[in-house]
Nucleic acid binder design. Structure first.
Length: 413
DNA sequence: TCTGGGGTCCTAGGACCC
DNA sequence: TCTGGGGTCCTAGGACCC
């Protein structure tokens, strides 16, 4: 593990909102948000009123009556996010982009060229402001975990450097929820044991944490709290799954609704898979009911698929099994389709029928209704395959939605 | 005070294989 | 036919992150 503070975490401030304020000067200095039905991003002026990302638009307007909503310029977000990454890459090739607006850098090899890590961080902030026009916060520390917390503490538009001999002093007073991996549930579980700060966490024996939170989460948090973070900056990670979802409001279950929605989602997923020259063996659907309880159903096929109608038919069958297992749920609020177990080469699916011929039935090993549905799904794959190679089902999206399609494209990072 | 969309990782039980 | 242990894959659910 490195013993000097050479890891940077660079994080653009209120990214979508800042871009809108950059593009339209009349939005600067006022509470504004990107979105409408739901807040996708809020400016710092809006955050001062308690407006947060993910919040329903109506609630945001109650908190902040003068809140101005704008629809997003999604292509600009991609373009400006890329520009910032290019600036980061001019300091080191060791840049790990973890979302559209956020990246880790390891500048250990760059100090001879560009100066100390803190100087590089200050330079990055100045250049992003001057060349792109956006505020960015940077944390500098010895580990990724510390650097990430430092950038959160630095916000908005700040720089925080954690010297290696002052790590505990920096970390211990901070609330546990600033740690990566501590959400509402874990925070609550810790609070019940009187653990509120990272210092409290560092004093708690590892075995207690593992008992309280499970083996993986407990040991990870324990290690992070005492500044053991073995992760290094990785240049790029390949996606392990591709999925699409659609919130439906409250809709009574109907064949038509399921068919239309699933085909649309399958088409989105399949299109993105093919654009990446990838295909996947496991198809997963998620159905959320009126009470917001969600169930998932998945199948792993003998070969990877990326063609719209195949994914659509397998997914439809899975949705039907999920609904059959919950006969009293008559209202659904969300559907999603995902493909995982990804492999390369779209051409892989030409082999599908051959592999499927080897499919064995093992009677008595599954519940009847589920087995029936899965058999049906596979039979449909087999039956449809010839037609599938001719062309893709053209799917028309019927419903208007709160979130524009461009935003969905964005989350691929 | 129930809100969008795209992801990752972990757990646990069962099937299956050696 | 019973006995045992270990490893891997699959499925379902859950917590979390941006």
């Amino acid at each position: 593990m490195a013993d000097a503070a050479t890891i940077l975490h660079a994080d653009l401030d209120a990214f979508y909102a800042s871009v809108e304020q950059l593009l339209d000067p009349s939005l600067r200095g006022i509470p504004m948000a990107v979105g409408g039905g739901v807040v996708l991003a809020a400016s710092y002026e809006a955050k001062a009123f308690g407006v947060r990302g993910g919040m329903p638009g109506r609630q945001a307007r109650q908190l902040c009556p003068n809140l101005r909503f704008v629809s997003g310029h999604f292509k600009e977000y991609v373009r400006l996010g890329d520009e910032v990454m290019t600036i980061l890459e001019s300091y080191t090739p060791a840049v790990e982009r973890i979302s559209i607006d956020e990246a880790f850098l390891d500048v250990a090899g760059s100090v001879h060229l560009f100066g100390a890590p803190a100087e590089i961080a200050a330079d990055i902030r100045r250049r992003v402001r001057e060349e792109v026009g956006l505020p960015i916060s940077v944390g500098v520390a010895r580990t990724k975990h510390l650097a990430k917390i430092a950038s959160q503490v630095a916000k908005p538009d700040g720089l925080v450097v954690v010297e290696p001999d002052r790590e505990d002093e920096f970390l211990h007073p901070l609330p546990v929820e600033l740690m990566w991996g501590v959400g509402p549930v874990t925070k609550q579980r810790l609070a019940e044991r009187g653990i509120r700060t990272i210092g409290d966490l560092a004093e708690t024996p590892g075995e207690s944490l593992e008992r309280l939170l499970g083996r993986a989460v407990g040991s990870k948090l324990g290690a992070l709290a005492i500044n053991e973070d073995p992760r290094s900056v990785e240049r790029h990670r390949r996606a392990a799954s591709v999925s699409a979802q659609s919130a439906l409001g409250r809709q009574p279950v109907s064949d038509d609704l399921i068919q239309r929605t699933i085909r649309h989602l399958a088409d989105r997923v399949a299109t993105r898979l093919r654009a990446k020259h990838r295909a996947g063996r496991t198809v997963t659907v998620r159905v959320r009911f009126e009470d917001l309880k969600a169930v998932t159903r998945s199948v792993t096929l003998p070969a990877a698929v990326s063609v719209t109608p195949i994914i659509a038919e397998v997914a439809e069958s899975l949705v039907r099994t999920a609904l059959a297992d919950h006969p009293h749920q008559r209202i659904i609020t969300l559907l999603s389709v995902g493909v995982s177990h990804l492999e390369y080469e779209e051409a892989l699916q030409l082999e599908l029928p051959l592999h499927l011929d080897g499919e064995e039935r093992r009677p008595g090993t599954e519940k009847g209704s589920e087995r029936w549905a899965l058999d049906k799904a596979i039979d449909e794959v087999r039956e449809k395959f010839g037609r599938a190679s001719v062309g893709y089902a053209s799917v028309v999206l019927a419903k208007d939605r709160a979130v524009p399609d461009e935003f969905r494209e964005l989350a691929e990072h």
